[in-house]
Design a protein around this nucleic acid. Structure first.
Lengths: 334, 334
DNA sequence: TTGTAAGCGTTATCAA
DNA sequence: TTGATAACGCTTACAA
């Protein structure tokens, strides 16, 4: 019953716990016979070491925390996929946590991870977060922190990003080239860095094309599907755009649903383009053009960066920002 | 630098660690002044207790492990949502783990959770698992285990289920009523209990309707989208079914994609119905009928059951099986 | 009200 | 090659 300990093994074998420990770790000089007896009994008793005791002793947990707004989201689950691949290789365990875009939960989760003494944290900031004191706290503890995608310039740590500005620029240029005249923008949450950059890309693309920037065509929609659906519905009714550039996959889905609600055909009457990973766009007829984000690569890059920092121990690193390329994927058949 | 401990506080305040501990836990008699000084310093030093030390001492981690085949899946992420709600309320932390349907990963993860000394585990078995010895191990350790949805009859523990048989029966009856004559079944992985039950429901519905059971119309497709797409393509070409009942959401999506690949219109030429949570079906035009699973409720039920068992301590429970109702949601406009 | 000391499971240092 | 022992951070009898 309960968990077998090294002590149980020592007692039954009438040897000391240190010998058992040594035999189990297969690293020190131990009489081969003794080792075998220990190994056999350990197997028989279903021995599993306690990572708590180990962590306590060695000040390492071989665990990293990953904090994302939501796991049921193509972009983040791809990123997690990438993170897990790298971690798995290096024998690190990944604790996946979702904040559901709540600042309160994000704080609670970060605290929990700190309490669990994870060796490092990879995090994408919730859109409702306005104060990053919980992240500064992580840094005060000297727990390596890598932010990805949804970052903040209020904190000076390692970051892994898309070229958001450039992606948005190219997306809107693409729409312009297809002859769109009233290109709207559903901007997500503008307290996020990525949203601001994407908005800037949108604006600059219009400027370059000599088109006016119409504030009525720019709407801060939030990142949730239903929020965006409502925002998009109002936008479509009031402004009759012939294209909408959306700040994320879910925003784009919200916009598609809104168009359907109103009987407006996509992309014939209104083109919808998202900053996105929409493999889901495959399910939509006809498929949409998107700006694809290298989600998996972002995850891998973040994890490698974090684990390298952890591996280096106390050596101090200058915060590093890595920018990954996005790519416009045209999908219209016409 | 690093983490502040109770010792640091004690040293600076020139008091004993026990007093600090007592002050922090706000439970024993401590001089209010002393307590205040401790609290203040703790805040100043950013003190956070070590859950490792705590867990070691009290043999409790206030953490449960949740193991699912994939997190990027409407059904499982809804279930996780339900689990988190219940856990959050009771101040439990949830470690989310995905196996990606790999038996090897499932074993590794379970071992990791045991090693982390989680207080209990909620798990949905990967479709590639054939041997449940890792689950028996969990039970040997007296770590409470609740299986949900993808269960196995090879292990006698607590279980939370859909009425899979009944749901399948009703789904196929619905298709029969709509005049379908060649109803096929994409069965997922038949080494899973749920798949067998759904297959039985399918067969019995046909029998009741006096329709023949044609083995060529039953295909073990696996649970992945792309696997199912390939299986469905072959099925559609060879057998020309006028309806397909699918064992899950992703199987249904695979079937839809296959139909599109072949230029077969859904649901006009072939109706596709999934055992599912497809809120995604909202995105598909026209929307599909489904058998809806109460995913969130399954999560909540599993978590409540598990936490109740944990709460009861050593008291021994008879393994309990809870069955939740599914529901056919007709969505065809015609 | 506070301090001392033992113990949770493990490893590392030092002696034997 | 093995065994005592201390230590990791924390709680809790027990003693003061």
């Amino acid at each position: 019953l309960g968990h077998t300990t090294i002590k149980d093994i020592a007692r039954k074998l009438k040897i000391s716990t240190s010998t058992v420990s040594r035999a189990l770790r297969d690293k020190y000089d131990v009489n081969p016979e003794t080792r075998q007896r220990v190994l056999d009994l350990a197997r028989e008793l279903n021995y599993l070491p306690s990572s708590q005791a180990l962590g306590l002793k060695q000040k390492k947990t071989l665990t990293i925390g990953v904090v994302v707004p939501e796991i049921d989201n193509e972009f983040f689950s791809d990123a997690i996929y990438g993170i897990e691949n790298v971690a798995f290789e290096r024998d690190y365990h990944v604790m996946i946590c979702q904040t559901r875009d709540s600042a309160e939960r994000e704080e609670r989760i970060v605290e929990k991870l700190l309490t669990a003494r994870v060796d490092g944290i990879i995090l994408s900031i919730s859109s409702s977060v306005t104060d990053v004191k919980h992240l500064k706290r992580v840094m005060e503890y000297d727990v390596p922190l890598v932010l990805f995608d949804r970052i903040s310039d209020a904190i000076d740590t390692h970051k892994v990003l898309n070229d958001d500005y450039d992606g948005a620029l190219k997306a809107v240029e693409y729409l312009v080239k297809r002859g769109k005249k009233r290109i709207a923008h559903l901007a997500g949450s503008l307290n996020l860095q990525i949203s601001k950059l994407r908005l800037n890309g949108y604006k600059d693309a219009l400027k370059k094309a000599g088109m006016p920037i119409n504030q009525n065509l720019i709407v801060e929609s939030g990142f949730k599907r239903e929020e965006s659906r409502i925002a998009a519905k109002a936008l479509l009714l009031d402004q009759k755009p012939d294209a909408i550039f959306c700040a994320s996959d879910n925003v784009a889905i919200g916009a598609i649903l809104a168009a359907r609600d109103l009987g407006i055909s996509v992309p014939k009457e209104v083109a919808i383009m998202g900053f996105s990973n929409l493999s889901i766009s495959e399910l939509i007829e006809p498929p949409l053009s998107t700006v694809n984000q290298p989600a998996k690569a972002m995850g891998e890059t973040s994890a490698k960066l974090l684990l390298d920092i952890i591996g280096q121990g106390d050596k101090i690193f200058d915060p590093k920002t890595i920018v990954l390329k996005t790519e416009v994927i045209p999908r219209e058949s016409t």
